[in-house]
């Protein structure tokens, strides 16, 4: 049907005489129509629904949804579990994005030159990316098992008893962060490999002639050229931090004592366990706002860094 409408629209615009200034606009919209329709149905309409839901809640127990104004948001910010999830998400963001970035850059620089051995290592480092997060989490569930898990098994050989990886509130979030770094570093490496190809060889030559050591070359040649890549990977990394909680779901369900609860999982808990659609919607909107801020500011830095390079 959509196709039919499209062809009809096209035919019309072709037959329209030149004096109509909006010809190209009509054509553009006609071409965009199919994806706009689906975006509207599956993205914009749900956003509107979430907006509506965030202002509604159950007033009478067992009753219908009624307008409650900003109450959902007030309750959300008053909930210590939400604040905990927000703080956890911050630690999680810093503790996963930065190490994965550093590791990825290291891998990429070590494997930048094409050779058979390097190709093999690239494939090995990239392997975790191919495993879905849920599957990876299920594997780590066995690695992290206290006493009988693979990690504790090897530690026991060294006569060390490991902590309760997922069951200790002080350790659990770090275990999950380690899994995330393992999962993402290989992916980011790919971008850095591509980015490194763009660093001109004569820039290095010039640096060497000027007597720059390896650190200086990294600091004054490689990193400036990689700025756009770093910016891009940063955006991807921060988006992942907010939008991926599969491993939390599989490994800890946000526990123990909310120590691994992240924003998205908190929203899930409100919607499903607490059956409070209003607060879940409010949480979603807060998350969405955070995502927009992160994306907008990173994209601006990204553009600026592109600009710098051009100048």
């Amino acid at each position: 049907m959509a196709q039919a409408v499209l062809t009809v629209g096209k035919a019309k615009t072709w037959s329209v005489p030149d004096w109509r200034p909006r010809r190209t606009t009509v054509l553009a919209f006609a071409l965009l129509a199919p994806s706009l329709l689906f975006l509207a149905l599956f993205t914009y309409w749900p956003v509107v629904q979430v907006l509506w839901q965030s202002l509604h809640g159950q007033v009478r127990v067992g009753g219908p949804q009624a307008y409650v104004g900003a109450q959902n948001f007030l309750k959300l910010f008053a909930d210590p579990a939400f604040r905990k999830a927000l703080a956890n998400n911050l630690v999680y963001a810093l503790g996963t994005v930065i190490p994965s970035l550093v590791l990825a850059l290291g891998f990429a620089m070590a494997l930048a030159r094409s050779s058979r051995v390097n190709a093999l290592f690239r494939a090995l480092f990239f392997l975790p990316v191919l495993i879905p997060l849920v599957a990876a989490a299920s594997i780590f569930l066995f690695l992290f098992l206290p006493n009988i898990g693979l990690i504790d098994y090897h530690l026991a050989k060294l006569a060390i008893s490991g902590p309760n990886w997922l069951g200790d509130p002080d350790v659990a979030l770090w275990s999950i962060m380690a899994l995330t770094v393992w999962k993402n570093a290989g992916y980011y490496m790919l971008f850095f490999l591509a980015g490194l190809q763009a660093v001109p060889a004569d820039a290095y030559e010039a640096a060497i002639l000027d007597g720059a050591g390896p650190w200086q070359r990294l600091r004054y040649v490689t990193l400036p050229y990689l700025k756009p890549t770093i910016g891009f990977v940063l955006v991807i990394g921060l988006l992942n931090v907010v939008t991926q909680v599969d491993h939390v779901f599989v490994l800890t369900k946000g526990g123990p004592s909310d120590s691994t609860n992240l924003l998205l999982f908190y929203v899930y808990q409100q919607a499903v366990e607490n059956y409070d659609a209003g607060r879940a919607a409010a949480g979603t909107l807060v998350m969405l706002a955070l995502l927009l801020v992160v994306t907008a500011s990173s994209l601006r830095t990204l553009e600026r860094s592109f600009g710098e390079k051009d100048a």
């Binding site: 009988i148 309760n164 069951g167 200790d168 123990p256």
Partner: peptide, 10 residues
């Protein structure tokens, strides 16, 4: 008894 949370499967 070990400290911390123990999952049923563990």
């Amino acid at each position: 008894h070990p400290a911390g949370v123990q999952a049923g499967g563990a």
